[in-house]
Design a protein around this nucleic acid. Structure first.
Lengths: 229, 229
DNA sequence: ATATAAATGTCATATAAATGTCATATAAAT
DNA sequence: ATTTATATGACATTTATATGACATTTATAT
């Protein structure tokens, strides 16, 4: 289940940019264009992390952050402050109030990295850390698959399938479910195509014997599991 | 078959957020922005569970909950109430009317956990939990059957029969009833075929002695039961 | 922009597993 | 002892999955 990240930012273009990037990184972005609006949202549902712009119309970022810190139910939510270039002297205050800060302009990649770092501390299960099964390692962020510390080459679709399977192991998925999850629900693609990609994926894993992890469940679909039958 | 969860919440952003999180958790969220609107939806869809905001414009949550309880077709639907922080004194009433409650602000993750817990209690058939009889375990989601922690291989039809029997144990089913349940009611298949599949299923269970669980009731059909005769 | 390589989806075919029926053996009921 | 119901092994057939080849699309390098 993806982490819910509240973004508080008054410039809509930046808000959208961040939102898009977080979505691509696998998070659920929640948008707020002001501290007041964000406050209402936080009163209802607790986000897992807050990205908070320093300068906001109305209540500013630091004020909002302090309010969050003052409330026992919200005080533990990690906050990343976004500060403008000029506010060098305010950085200290930003860092003391928030858990981390970034100076504008910042790279979305950097923001995602910082978010992951903070989330990792408090809720490691929400972060896209490498998934490890014995000596098979799939690293979503670097898009690499290793077996015995050796990188194996694998096609994009095969990567997605393996990723999906490793995240959702020990469960059968029908070909149609897999088509939905990997290709998207609009896809007009033939069921049998899944077979072919499974074949290719198994081919990539074969050398190490890990192709056994991808199991055919006759009449039901495929399953990724350590436990062999 | 995902559980249908009706969410009644007037703030659209919260409604969307909850909806998104439930969807990610594998549920089928149904949105309603008022009790009046929800009332119609309940009649149409008979949801498996309702997440109900306490404070609503028009008819409030508790009133709506009471109406649901008064109606025989809806009285058993589990309800999770969402209460505002201040309403400490109302909690008791909320808990008595609903089956569980959460105080705002709550984390979506917590909500999902509560929903699962309630569903497991009230409609275990929706939760696809493993079915366990002594050391025989059938896991519908992974499509595996274990005996003494060892996976046994079993054909699709045998799996369906065993699943059906474990869900409906201690009851005799005629061959025709079994044909209906497993093959579908259109089937033109011979009664005796059931015998053969029962034979095969027993064969798979034999090693462990669990074939004894599948009992022949002469003149009536078959029965799955722990109690040996 | 063009050349080159990689990836994709489909098909036909090969292989394997599962199925349903039957004939016969065995056990239970009368 | 005879009738009736169920168990079982064998088998031909059907159905599902695996696989190799190929034309086409898409991405990457030049």
């Amino acid at each position: 289940m993806a982490a819910n990240i509240l973004i508080v930012e008054d410039e809509s273009s930046i808000l959208e940019l961040i939102s898009l990037n977080l979505h691509q990184a696998g998070f659920n972005p929640i948008r707020a264009i002001s501290a007041e609006y964000a406050d209402n949202l936080v009163k209802e549902t607790l986000p897992d992390l807050i990205v908070l712009d320093w300068m906001l119309p109305g209540m500013n970022g630091i004020e909002f952050a302090k309010r969050l810190r003052a409330n026992s139910t919200t005080k533990l939510i990690p906050i990343i402050m976004l500060t403008a270039k000029g506010d060098e002297d305010n950085k200290l205050e930003g860092l003391t109030v928030g858990d981390d800060y970034l100076t504008k302009p910042f790279s979305p990649r950097e923001l995602v990295a910082r978010i992951k770092a903070l989330l990792r501390r408090r809720s490691p299960e929400l972060v896209n850390d490498p998934i490890i099964v014995e000596s098979l390692v799939l690293d979503p962020s670097s898009h690499k698959v290793q077996i015995n510390n050796k990188i194996i080459s694998i096609g994009p679709t095969e990567f997605k399938i393996l990723h999906f399977f490793m995240k959702n192991s020990d469960r059968v998925y029908s070909r149609n479910k897999i088509l939905d999850k990997i290709w998207g629900n609009k896809s007009e693609i033939d069921d049998r195509t899944v077979d072919v990609h499974i074949k290719r994926l198994r081919g990539s894993l074969k050398q190490s014997g890990y192709d056994k992890l991808i199991q055919t469940v006759r009449g039901a679909g495929y399953r990724f599991s350590k436990e062999l039958e």
